[in-house]
Design a protein around this nucleic acid. Structure first.
Length: 675
DNA sequence: TTTCGTGTGATTTTT
DNA sequence: TCACACGAAA
């Protein structure tokens, strides 16, 4: 009889100079294209990864491979589009390689910039306690500055705060001058170029003074830091010796610049992306980044991933056909080994509600066939496109969560409450001060402005507030007391702060909104979130950088999390996949939207967006379009399917017409507002 | 100076 | 339909 051989494990020593045996069989887990990318050597590399080609898998294995071959995890920087996807990748790498992976630094450009600036920003005048302005706050500050400059005379048509913000943001993100942007894209405001430049300068210096950074500043300042502070630059680039960038097609010039600076000393940078899925041009992103990467980093190795593991061949045929029409791209052709599957359906509905009813019914049917709700998604161009469907789904008792659209964090009452927290954290934050003061009965723009001036000058905010007599005196005293009880002792936890402010704020909330019960629930939710944070600064920064999605509506059934279908804008669906996908409102004028008809490049972007939506589906794909819908904004009667389907041959799609049971007509449903 | 009401005008996608 | 900006009354 053979004796059983016992094994004894020899531990690895860390200073092992000889290349050690890798612990994972990479060749078995990956296809040859993926393997090549994963095991790429040092130096710049570009991975062109088609939809569903295992891009995430490749990145995860790349991280594991680097660690496996002796790289210290804390030397790896993983830049992704959302923080969630960074965490997911790190976690999956951990399953391969062990908990070591947790020391990988991962996150969005903005969140990494946030961390680095808080640590090293002092040298360029960024104090570690700075406050991050979200889009709304930034616009409020613009409005404030605008009125200070007296730029709101009524005779001239001056752009609104949102438009101004858009202009400035675009100029920052594309590294172009404001004048250029205005002449190029906002031609009708060309008369105001001088005023707008003044406004921009004033806005910038207001932020600087008050230690406020908007989203763009996070990147701008990081670039600044890398440019001006040699010591910080060396420290940072010594720390991040391997840089991985996901979704590179959606980076803008500014981000590309930051990557180049970060990698300047070692060139160990791998970017991954798909030019056909570039859908963030409105935010300054340009797929040219990915096209020009090899020029920016000479010696770039290019890898292409073309085998699709997600979808069936019929779905890919349609996808390929749509993107074939695109003007400019890296040529690649997706293929799959999943040959068989149902043809995608193109469904014509007599009106919006018919479309909704079709979807609800079909979802129930799919569930009968064994497709769980969690494997179903409904995608759309703009978030309001799902309103009618949401009602229909609730009526049928189908639970869903909605992604994209108005964020819970952006609702007025949540911003109100947070403004108080922020004032305590950064007493110079005049945007939040303004918000807080204006809530007090009897305080308007003038008094708020005066008080602010006194606070900035005089130092002791609470004394200033208590010194006021008259109509607003009582309210301001109460505000001062609340804030004072929370400041000073910095140990107050975020949840405690939220709690106290809630008590102070509740009467104001009731006064202001009739629907306050709904809103108090949001505030309860905020409190729950706050409980997860030990420190106020992390709490505030996280909230600004990675807002929890979904407003409180539609979150009615929190019990079985995986038993809900997803409603999502296409943008928010990036990188995700489902067994069954519905893309609704495939009507010319909605998708592509009328706004994109003017410029070719806008239309191209819509096409890529359509491509992204179609390639989310693993097996079942339904494209639906209502007809005879009157569009108020354009005055058009929408009745033709999207022009992106014009060149799709009819044998790639199942065309379906909906028939009412018993012959009841759609016109009978008079509650349909579009009808 | 604040607040409230009316009119206008524009209207996506998000860190 | 909604938000924003402006004008009039308290």
């Amino acid at each position: 009889m053979e004796r059983e051989v016992k094994t004894y494990v020899l531990k690895r020593s860390d200073d092992d100079a000889v290349p050690r045996k890798l612990s994972i069989d990479y060749a078995a887990a990956l296809n040859s294209q993926q393997l090549a990318a994963v095991t790429a050597g040092e130096g710049p590399s570009l991975v062109i990864a088609g939809a569903g080609s295992g891009k995430t898998r490749t990145l995860v294995y790349r991280v594991a491979y680097l660690i496996d071959s002796g790289v210290d995890p804390s030397n790896i920087l993983l830049l992704t589009f959302t923080r969630k996807s960074a965490q997911e990748m790190v976690q999956r790498a951990g399953e391969l390689i062990g908990a070591r992976s947790e020391r990988v630094c991962g996150g969005t450009f903005h969140s990494v910039a946030n961390l680095l600036l808080r640590r090293y920003g002092r040298s360029i005048g960024v104090e570690p306690g700075f406050t991050i302005l979200d889009r709304g706050d930034a616009e409020d500050l613009i409005a404030l500055v605008r009125s200070q400059l007296g730029l709101n005379e009524k005779d001239k048509r001056f752009p609104r705060k949102g438009t101004i913000m858009e202009m400035i943001s675009k100029s920052e993100n594309t590294l172009r001058s404001l004048e250029e942007i205005i002449l190029d894209e906002f031609g009708h405001f060309a008369d105001h170029i001088e005023d707008l430049s003044r406004l921009k300068t004033a806005y910038q210096s207001a932020k600087r003074q008050k230690q406020l950074l908007d989203y763009d500043d996070l990147l701008v300042m990081l670039r600044q830091l890398l440019l001006l502070d040699e010591t910080a630059r060396m420290t940072i680039s010594r720390q991040f010796r391997y840089i991985l960038v996901d979704e590179y097609q959606d980076t803008n010039r500014l981000q590309a610049e930051v990557v180049r600076k970060l990698a300047a000393t070692h060139n160990n940078v791998m970017v991954v992306g798909d030019d056909s899925q570039s859908i963030y041009a409105f935010r300054g992103a340009t797929f040219k980044n990915i096209m020009e990467f090899p020029q920016l980093f000479p010696g770039t190795q290019i890898y292409k991933l073309e085998e699709n593991y997600r979808s069936t061949q019929p779905i890919l045929n349609l996808a390929n056909c749509i993107i074939d029409e695109a003007a400019e791209k890296y040529t690649k052709r997706l293929f799959t080994r999943k040959i068989d599957g149902p043809l995608p359906s193109l469904v014509e509905a007599a009106g919006e509600n018919t479309q909704s009813r079709f979807i609800a019914q079909k979802i129930l049917e799919l569930r009968e066939e064994g497709v769980p709700l969690s494997e179903v998604a409904v995608l759309f161009r703009s978030s309001f496109h799902s309103f009618d469907l949401e009602i229909e789904l609730s009526r049928k008792g189908l639970p869903f969560i909605k992604r994209g659209g108005v964020k819970f964090i952006e609702t007025a009452h949540v911003k109100d409450l947070l403004a108080h927290v922020r004032v305590i954290a950064n007493p110079l934050d005049t945007v939040s001060w303004n918000r807080v003061l204006m809530l007090v009965e009897g305080v308007g723009p003038k008094k708020a402005h005066d008080l602010l001036a006194a606070i900035v000058k005089g130092g002791q905010p609470f004394d200033v507030l208590r010194g006021v007599s008259g109509r607003s005196g009582q309210g301001l005293k109460s505000l001062a007391n609340t804030l004072e009880s929370l400041s000073g002792a910095e140990a107050r936890s975020p949840s405690e702060q939220v709690n106290q402010i809630y008590e102070y704020y509740l009467p104001i909330l009731k006064e202001q909104y009739d629907d306050y019960p709904k809103r108090t629930r949001d505030l309860d939710h905020l409190h729950t979130i706050a409980e997860g944070y030990p420190g106020v600064n992390e709490f505030l920064a996280d909230l600004a950088l990675e807002p929890p999605d979904g407003s409180a509506s539609g979150v009615d059934a929190p019990d079985r999390d995986d038993e809900r279908l997803v409603l999502s804008t296409i943008h928010s669906a990036k990188g995700l996949e489902w067994q069954a996908v519905f893309v609704i409102w495939i009507v010319d004028g909605r998708f592509p939207s009328v706004y994109s008809f003017v410029a070719d490049e806008d239309l191209e972007e819509e096409r890529r967006l359509f491509y992204v939506s179609v390639t989310r589906a693993k097996r079942h794909l339904f494209l639906t379009y209502p007809i005879n819908v009157y569009d108020k904004s354009s005055g058009m009667l929408l009745s033709k399917p999207s022009r992106f389907l014009d060149h799709v041959s009819s044998d790639l799609l199942d065309q379906v017409a909906l028939v009412e049971e018993g012959g009841r007509g759609e016109w009978g449903r008079s509650h349909d507002p579009y009808y």
